[in-house]
């Protein structure tokens, strides 16, 4: 038997930044497959466009800031930001929307604040919110699930839609889009319909959330759980986000199930799961302490519910993430773990 002489500090861990970022991308693959299956090829084109833009902007900014270009370009963080932002945009969004959002995320939200590790706000969400308040029309043109559209959307059709705004047969974007489940529910509730009436009135609603959306969300959940298993992220933030969203939704659902959607609907719709596992867990913009992360996540869940239910926008996750990013340093300040040997206050 061979004894290992080297003790623990010499143990290698294949854990560097590039590896970390690659794993986040791997975890998104199942969701991507589901997305393409239910909503067509637009998302793939968007991601490619976003990645190319992100790498160009990253290289440009590194050059301007006199930082080593190759080192930072290969760390994968720009690719992850671009991919996350592209997944948050409508799949058939016009090309300039994606390019503008990614460029803003990389140049303003990341590099003007000092680059990777110094940005107080999640770059992908800054890019998203910038687009949302600047171009409300384009940002709400969400593709309808393919099963609910008469037209068979081919790969070339998606390209032509993204770059020219129409496809060969003369079909406009409007014919392929549909309100998202959250949007639809909000509109129906404004008409004083009950939740149950709304859910049965329109084909966009599925078993738990929306048709197609619920499966995309489940695959994202699977990818997120894999990330926790691989220790890329910890469980604190996702549990905080989804737990608080579930609880607050359950409370209002319990009080009045006619006017407030079920907790399951809230979790399975929109970007709740996506943000819980992939957006809010960004190590740069989230708190670093365990308890701090749970509180951070809980804040996002509660704010998202408030914006969804009583706010002007159907989905509030992006705003919730940015608002909680702002208080992350404060949370860290107040929830420092007790250092061993120091007395409790």
């Amino acid at each position: 038997m061979e004894f290992k002489i080297k003790s623990s500090p010499q143990t290698h861990l294949d854990n560097n930044l590039t590896q970390l970022m690659m794993r986040i991308l791997y975890a998104l693959i199942p969701a991507l497959v589901a997305y393409v299956w239910f909503f067509g090829w637009g998302i793939v084109i968007n991601i490619l466009l976003a990645v190319v833009t992100a790498l160009s902007c990253e290289a440009l900014m590194l050059k301007l800031r006199q930082r080593p270009v190759k080192l930072f370009l290969t760390d994968g963080s720009a690719v992850v930001t671009a991919t996350l932002l592209a997944m948050a945009l409508p799949p058939l969004a016009p090309w300039w929307l994606t390019v503008l959002g990614v460029a803003f995320a990389i140049i303003v939200a990341k590099h003007l604040y000092g680059g990777l590790g110094f940005n107080p706000f999640n770059p992908a969400m800054v890019g998203y919110v910038m687009l949302l308040i600047s171009f409300p029309l384009e940002m709400t043109g969400w593709s309808a699930p393919l099963s609910l559209v008469d037209y068979k959307l081919a790969f070339m059709d998606s390209i032509s839609m993204i770059f020219t705004g129409q496809i060969a047969s003369g079909l406009q974007l409007d014919a392929l889009t549909m309100a998202t489940p959250l949007d639809m529910l909000k509109a129906e509730l404004r008409l004083e319909h009950t939740v149950a009436e709304s859910l049965s009135s329109h084909p966009v609603f599925g078993l738990m959330g929306g048709v197609g959306w619920e499966w995309v969300n489940l695959t994202i959940l699977a990818g997120g759980v894999w990330l926790i298993y691989k220790k890329v992220i910890t469980w604190h933030v996702p549990v905080g986000v989804l737990g608080s969203l579930f609880i607050i939704a359950a409370v209002f659902y319990g009080i009045d199930s006619e006017h407030y959607a079920s907790p399951l609907f809230h979790i399975m719709s929109g970007a709740a799961i996506f943000a819980a596992f992939f957006i809010a867990t960004d190590p740069v913009t989230a708190p670093t302490t365990a308890l701090g992360r749970v509180i951070f996540g809980a804040g996002i869940g509660i704010l998202a519910y408030i914006i969804r239910t009583w706010g002007g926008y159907p989905e509030g996750i992006a705003f919730a993430v940015l608002l909680m990013n702002m208080v992350a340093p404060t949370i860290d300040h107040y929830y420092q773990p007790r250092v061993f040997g120091h007395r409790k206050k």
């Binding site: 500090p9 010499q10 560097n16 006199q66 080192l71």
Partner: peptide, 13 residues
């Protein structure tokens, strides 16, 4: 001149 290197914190060999 600015010089930066990537360091691996976890693999300290």
């Amino acid at each position: 001149p600015i010089e930066l290197r990537q360091v691996n914190v976890s693999s300290s060999s």
